[in-house]
Amino acid sequence: MTTLTSAANPFALLLDPQTVLASIERSERLVRLHSRICRPLDKPLLPAGGKAQATKAFDREIDDDVSDDLN
């Protein structure tokens, strides 16, 4: 009877992790889920090092040329 009460109350499940794990293992819906590996999207787009420095220098040259053209 305690298992039924704790399974019906999600806050009681926080106090009993073994019941949660047992429920997960018995769940048919979770067994049918397809899993996939997701890669993080927050990786830097520009490589660090020499190429990044060269890109910044090129950007500065372009900005300087544009500001010279405006004056």
Rank of each mutant, 00 (worst) to 15 (best):
P10M: 03
R29A: 15
K43M: 05
E28Y: 02
G50T: 14
A48E: 08
R60T: 14
R26T: 02
P10W: 02
I24L: 05
F58A: 15
L4S: 02
I24G: 01
A12I: 05
D64P: 01
D69I: 13
L15Q: 11
A54C: 05
F58G: 13
E61S: 14
S35G: 04
A8T: 09
P10A: 06
A57H: 05
L14F: 02
T55P: 01
S27K: 08
E28M: 05
E28L: 10
D64M: 10
L46D: 07
A22S: 12
D65F: 12
A57G: 07
S35A: 06
D42I: 03
M1D: 13
M1C: 11
I24Y: 00
T3C: 02
D63A: 15
K56L: 14
P44V: 02
E25S: 11
H34Q: 14
D69E: 13
V20I: 14
A57F: 03
R39L: 08
A7Y: 01
I37Y: 00
Q18I: 08
C38P: 00
E28T: 10
H34W: 07
S27A: 12
S6P: 01
T2I: 03
K51R: 08
P10R: 03
D59Y: 15
G50F: 09
P17A: 04
V31K: 15
E28Q: 12
K51I: 12
P47H: 02
G50Y: 05
P47T: 10
E61D: 15
A8F: 03
R29S: 15
K56P: 01
L46V: 07
F58V: 15
R26M: 05
G49Y: 04
T2L: 11
A12M: 07
E25V: 07
A22D: 12
L46H: 04
R60W: 11
N9K: 05
N71Y: 14
R36W: 09
P47Q: 06
A57R: 11
R29V: 13
A52Y: 05
D59A: 13
I37M: 00
R29F: 11
P44C: 02
I37E: 00
V31Y: 12
L13M: 08
L21P: 00
L21F: 06
S23Q: 12
K43T: 12
P40K: 03
P17R: 03
P10G: 03
I62N: 10
T5R: 11
R29W: 09
E61Q: 14
S6C: 11
T19F: 01
P17C: 04
L30A: 02
L41C: 09
A52R: 09
L15G: 12
C38A: 04
D64I: 09
L21R: 07
E28N: 10
T19L: 05
L33G: 08
L46S: 06
V31Q: 13
G50I: 14
E61Y: 13
N71E: 15
T55E: 12
T2D: 10
G49K: 04
T55K: 11
D63H: 13
R36L: 14
N71R: 14
T55F: 15
E61A: 13
K51H: 06
